[in-house]
Design a protein around this nucleic acid. Structure first.
Lengths: 233, 233
DNA sequence: AGAGCATAAAGTGCATGCACTTGCCTCGCC
DNA sequence: GGCGAGGCAAGTGCATGCACTTTATGCTCT
């Protein structure tokens, strides 16, 4: 019966489904190539197939799932080549954001970027990887916003979300935390003195390094072998 | 009754709907802010509301329509600011494509790019605006492909399609045809000698000029006042 | 007469049902 | 024993129906 949802969260049912499924893909709970059966998903979340179908449509448009007509949906399989192309795009997009940020950030934006960045040095010292990862995301988001270009922001965030599953392990390499901070520092310094070219180059290099650090883990593909089939009689 | 479609084209019904509606938006037949009533669209194309809904979902993900929960969908209203951000992104994306193309195009790609470009000079001479516009699209597509980066290609094509409605009139400015060709020429020359920086700059400038040429018409918003409500008793 | 409220109409959101497609499995055939 | 045709089960694609939300309309009361 419509109107009463068991796990009441927010937005329409379709939105919830999109978030729920996207989350499971991005966190790696659902693995590339894994079958996404409409019926099972519907049962799993206690909704009908209609919103699940719509959600799969959205996710397909976002590139997180692949849909073959009449043949169901699977979690998008990213080839090594496509992955590389996404990391490269990401580097370019971040370079654009940094370059624009250097030229356009307001005083407030510059201040808070620098303050937060300096504060994060503590997280590096104490080796708080979890917290640093959260800060790292914030830091990059500031760059994207600082560019003051909504479309670039959208493209960048979209690309980042697509890469999310492949970046999980980036801080597991020893010493990556401190290196990351230093790379951020170069970007911040360039932005503070309004040097767009330097900021762009620093941002591009930063992402390229992350890309290499992540590529190591891309081939491995860890996480959950199960899920997806428990509601199959 | 499912299985028999009146206007048999290709792909699933949803795909047809996406193309049909997107086409009407991109060509300006449906104007920004115009109401997209599921029932009317369904009747208009002789399908049920389900595929129409899914299509609207896709279009919403593509940014061509806006959807307010429980309040229906409208053709996306692009603010002047957002439009500017998209043109700026486009310039940056094309710059990336040109830069990469200069470094990565194969011999064959370079040759055909140059040949086609030189051939298009004729279209300029005889003032074949229609034909030149077609060639122009091809030319840019070559640049996107030449970058050899599928994700950048996707982002660029996506952005271009979103800008399409606002570029309709770009060749209506007197002398724009010849100017366009000369700008292309700078890009091609730079690519042929493998100068990525110059190619990128030339491409960025080219798009910026198109942007300005188009901005003139953005405010006007021509085309069809009717449609959308004839199936309302 | 105008503001506020009730009520109806329109339209969206989701559930359900059925036809069609696909993939698998079995059975007959060579 | 391998191979192809037929049939079966699972699953997708779309249509339809109903509940809920929003919006338009008319009515009352001040």
């Amino acid at each position: 019966m419509p109107g009463k949802r068991s796990l009441v969260r927010s937005g329409t049912t379709v939105d919830q489904m999109v978030r729920a499924i996207a989350d499971r893909i991005v966190t790696g709970y659902l693995r590339p190539g894994e079958r996404l059966d409409e019926g099972s998903l519907a049962a799993r979340f206690d909704v009908s197939r209609t919103p699940v179908r719509e959600a799969l449509g959205h996710l397909s448009a976002m590139g997180l799932v692949e849909r073959r007509p009449n043949r169901g949906a699977i979690v998008a399989v990213i080839t090594q080549e496509h992955l590389a192309s996404m990391f490269e795009s990401m580097a370019e997009l971040e370079a654009i954001c940094a370059r624009f940020s250097a030229a356009r950030m307001t005083g407030g934006e510059r201040r808070s970027l620098e303050i937060e960045h300096l504060a994060s040095a503590r997280l590096v010292q104490i080796g708080a990887e979890e917290d640093y990862e959260y800060f790292n995301t914030e830091f990059h988001t500031r760059l994207y916003r600082g560019a003051h270009n909504t479309h670039v922001y959208d493209l960048t965030v979209m690309t980042r979300s697509r890469l999310a599953p492949f970046r999980r392990a980036q801080f597991m390499l020893p010493g990556r935390l401190a290196k990351s901070w230093q790379e951020h520092d170069v970007i911040v310094t360039a932005i503070m003195r309004g040097d767009g070219m330097a900021a762009g180059k620093a941002a591009r290099d930063h992402v390229s390094i992350v890309s290499e650090a992540s590529a190591v883990f891309a081939a491995v593909d860890p996480v959950h072998p199960e899920f997806s089939q428990s509601a199959r009689r």
